[in-house]
Amino acid sequence: MEINWGNFLKNLGEWEGSFTQVAIDGELLSSTASILTLEGLEDNQLVQLRLRRFANNITEQPTADFTQEYRSLGRQLVFFDTGAFSKGSLQVAPFAEFGAEYGFVAGNRRARLVQLFDLQGSFSSLTLIQEIRSGTDAIMRPALTVEQLLGKWEGTAFTVYSDWKPSETNVVSLEINQVNGSLHQQLSFGSHRISSTARIEGNQLHFEEGVTPRRVLLLPDGVSSNIPLQISHRQPFFVEAGWLLSDNERQRLIRSYNDKGEWISSTHAIEHRVG
């Protein structure tokens, strides 16, 4: 728990950004400006969060002003060494909304993503949050493209388990190729080897093989969303967000659920282009 709190503190500061609503087909909808402040108090034993949102820009009066204090973190909220985090529903239940939130941090930049599913378990909405540390000249990256993902990526994946069993670090290798209108990828993760093919349609990747179709959306600021179109408490699944920090470094956050709909693990992968 102390490690989790220490990693949380890597997000302290004032962050200016925006909340952008994204349709399930990847179309960008409405956007609002924001200022998020995470302030450490009482020798960083207390963190005070303040989120202000604005109709047009941050020079106006906020349309919403929310505050919250943290002295501890819930079990469903996992922070990793870089300050990246993953949180979400502990259990998939019939006729209950399901959601997952991810956050990446690197220097003076943060990127966050919220995925929501409706009462029937269908993918319903997406929110992209792009943030820059106030007073810095950090810039946001352009929208992610298929071409930026092509090649071979290698790195490590650190997994935290919900039942408190020891965390694991695995070598991960991902090779992505494009053939005509399709994307082919081969993933090696520990002892697992997975091959998959997607149909490319604009900023959408449609993985239509297998029991549950999946959709990857390529979004502004190098962010990607990877979700099944339908979830169930009777079938295992995972949800994922990615962030291309630079041309040659990408991070991914994955939340995994078992065939009882229970959250079982969170993984943070850091990958570098090697070919």
Results as ranks from 00 to 15, higher is better:
residue 161 Y to M: 03
residue 161 Y to E: 02
residue 161 Y to D: 03
residue 162 S to P: 00
residue 162 S to W: 00
residue 162 S to E: 12
residue 162 S to H: 10
residue 163 D to I: 04
residue 163 D to S: 01
residue 164 W to A: 05
residue 164 W to R: 02
residue 164 W to K: 00
residue 164 W to S: 06
residue 165 K to L: 07
residue 165 K to E: 11
residue 165 K to C: 03
residue 165 K to P: 00
residue 167 S to G: 15
residue 167 S to P: 13
residue 167 S to V: 04
residue 167 S to H: 08
residue 167 S to Q: 14
residue 167 S to W: 06
residue 168 E to F: 00
residue 168 E to P: 00
residue 168 E to Q: 08
residue 168 E to M: 03
residue 169 T to F: 00
residue 169 T to L: 07
residue 170 N to S: 08
residue 170 N to H: 04
residue 170 N to A: 04
residue 171 V to K: 07
residue 171 V to S: 12
residue 172 V to M: 08
residue 172 V to P: 01
residue 173 S to C: 03
residue 174 L to M: 09
residue 175 E to S: 14
residue 175 E to M: 10
residue 176 I to E: 02
residue 177 N to F: 02
residue 177 N to S: 10
residue 177 N to H: 05
residue 178 Q to E: 14
residue 178 Q to C: 05
residue 178 Q to G: 05
residue 179 V to E: 14
residue 179 V to I: 15
residue 179 V to Q: 14
residue 179 V to L: 14
residue 180 N to T: 09
residue 181 G to W: 07
residue 181 G to M: 05
residue 182 S to N: 12
residue 182 S to Q: 14
residue 183 L to P: 10
residue 184 H to D: 11
residue 185 Q to N: 13
residue 185 Q to S: 15
residue 185 Q to T: 12
residue 185 Q to P: 01
residue 186 Q to N: 12
residue 186 Q to H: 14
residue 186 Q to A: 12
residue 186 Q to R: 11
residue 187 L to F: 09
residue 187 L to Y: 05
residue 187 L to D: 01
residue 188 S to G: 00
residue 188 S to R: 11
residue 188 S to Q: 13
residue 188 S to N: 09
residue 189 F to Q: 03
residue 189 F to H: 05
residue 189 F to Y: 13
residue 190 G to N: 07
residue 190 G to F: 01
residue 191 S to R: 08
residue 191 S to T: 13
residue 192 H to T: 13
residue 193 R to Q: 15
residue 193 R to C: 04
residue 193 R to G: 05
residue 194 I to G: 05
residue 194 I to N: 10
residue 195 S to T: 13
residue 195 S to N: 14
residue 195 S to D: 14
residue 196 S to V: 02
residue 197 T to C: 06
residue 197 T to S: 11
residue 198 A to I: 08
residue 198 A to E: 01
residue 198 A to R: 02
residue 199 R to N: 13
residue 199 R to C: 06
residue 199 R to D: 13
residue 200 I to A: 08
residue 200 I to K: 02
residue 200 I to C: 10
residue 200 I to D: 10
residue 200 I to T: 09
residue 200 I to G: 07
residue 200 I to N: 09
residue 200 I to E: 09
residue 200 I to V: 15
residue 200 I to P: 06
residue 201 E to L: 14
residue 201 E to F: 09
residue 201 E to V: 15
